[in-house]
Structures are given as C-alpha cells and as structure tokens.
Amino acid sequence: MSEQKFTKEIIRLSDTQNTIDSIVAKLKEDVIKVLRRRGGVVGISGGIDSSVTLALAVKAFGAKNVLGVMLPEKDSSDDSKALALKLADKFGVRVVEENISGALEGFGCYQRRDEAVKRVIPEYNPQTDKMKIGIPVEFLNSNMPPVFYVTVIFADGTEKSERLPMNEYLQIVAASNFKQRSRMSMLYYHAEALHYAVIGTPNKHEVQQGFFVKYGDGGADVMPIGNLFKTQVYELARELGVPQEIIDRTPTTDTYTAEQTQEEFFYQMPFETMDLLWYGWENGFSPEEVAMGIEKDEQEISRIFKNFERKKKTTDYLRMPPIHNY
C-alpha cells in the first residue's frame, strides 16, 4: 500500500505557474546551452498539445525566435488551420503553411493505404467514402492483446467494419505513418534553415504508451510536455492563455479520412480516467486503492493495469534510439 491516499485530485498540479516556470527554464537550457540552437520550430495543428508546446516555446525563447508550422494534407480537418492561425496570432509568432499532400502522393501514402483497405472491404471507394481504424472497447475488458478493425463510412452514411488481418493492418499503419514522417522532415527543414531545434509535442501518454510514430511525431529534439498528463496539459493551457476554442476541442487523431477521437482510436477511455489510472499504476498504487479512490471496479482496474504493462512493453521499440554500441 502507498502512503499517499489515492483520490481523483491526485494528479492536479499544486502550482501550475511553478510547473510552467520550471519547464520553460529547462527548455531554454536544453535548446540554447545543450543543443546550441537559437530558437524553436513547432508543428501546430490547432490541438491542445501543440498549442501548449508553442506557448511554452514562446516563453522560453521569445516570440521572435519561434516558428509555427502548419502541416495540413488532404485528409486534415478544416478546423485545424483556423485554430492554428488563431494560436499563432495570440502568441505573436511567425507561421508558415506547408501542405504535405504532394509529398504524400509521391510516397504513395494514400494509394498504399487504400489498396490495403480495399483488400478487406472491396466496396471501399476512396474518392467518395471515408475510413478509419480502431480497437473495439471490448478489448479493454480482457487480457487479450488488442486487434484493429477498419471501418468504412460510405457516401450514403452506412458503415462497414471488418477485423484487419496482419498484412493489411501493417500496410495501413505503415502507409499512414508517412504523414507524421513527412511532417518531421519539413519541421527539420525549417529548424535547420533557421538554426532552431524541433520542439516535439507528444504528452506523457503518447510517449509512455507509444501513441506516436517513430521518427515521425516522435522525431524531435526536445519534448517539453512529454512528462505531463493530459489533464495537466489542460491546466497549463488555461494558465498560458491558449484560446478557449482549442481547449474545448475534442482531441482527434486527424490521420484518417473519417473523423475519429483519440479515445476511440487508441486510449479507449476518457483522458481524465486514463490519467488517474496511469498515475496509479506508475506510482505503485494497488488496484484496490485506485478502485476506492475513483469508484471503479477493482477487477476492471487490475485488467487495465495489465494492459498498461503490456502496452509499455510492446512499445519499448518506439522509444529506443538506434543501438550503436557494437
């Protein structure tokens, strides 16, 4: 049993301003002194994570030493640009738009993805239909490793879901990952052209649970919110003055043509619950203590803890740098 009592408030930051100050001081030290770069490039999507990251970078380096880069492609949500511009305006940073659709066409990203979807759902027409992949929530309640399903939303609004065989699942993911990797390439172009560092935007869950693309959004020089739970990212957003529309927006994957929340795609539970459970698991609270603190079933929490353990282990590969000590 842990000495501290587990409550719903346990992950609240005791002093948000102090957390901001300490992240900003370290960010400045890391980029200027350690990496010897003179500013930061942030890919901005109009989402909460990139918005908080940009605001922190502005505090660390000053607005004139931060560049916001919007990186839309043909599947991106229309809201993203307006929100990203509003954010850049609010914090007074320069912003450039780099549409990566052409690069993705060149890589065959859309074609390779759609080929794999069509092998599973032959009626899929990428010109008129939308698609997404996800894990059914039932897997959360079992000790089975999750398997993904593809869902096609046809032009008439009807839907069809099929379990993805291994080859098709891998091809869809590998093709889609061109998006994050193309964004990373473009961010490094701007960073190198300005002698800046790439400031990465993944939060703690994304880093720890492997919800990022290796050398894609996982490719950055520093990740200032990489140790913050989503609840804490929101706390910082309010303190930093991130526009309310961004705070109110539901986090989406913005990766597939059909709209999809991050909860639906990967986490399978609201982030408030995810934060508490991950905190409990990571800090050695027993399922019984956590169950009492958040009024949930102890057995369910045990299963979720096992899932966390498996997720952490199976995604170690993503967090590993190249092994070169031969």
Partner: peptide, 28 residues
C-alpha cells in the same frame, strides 16, 4: 499473453496461420 510471448502481431499471425494452414476461421 501474460508471459509476453505473444502480442497483437503474434495473435494476428496465429489467426492467419489457423485459417491458411489448418482451415479454421476465427470469428470476432
């Protein structure tokens, strides 16, 4: 699964193997 021998990829490979080699289809 508990021993970490099999993850999602292992399970998907097994499902394909059962179908293609042993003729058993795994339903959802």
């Amino acid at each position: 699964f508990e021993e970490g021998i099999f993850d999602s990829m292992g399970l998907l490979s097994l499902i394909t193997f059962l179908d293609e080699e042993l003729g058993v289809k795994t339903e959802d």
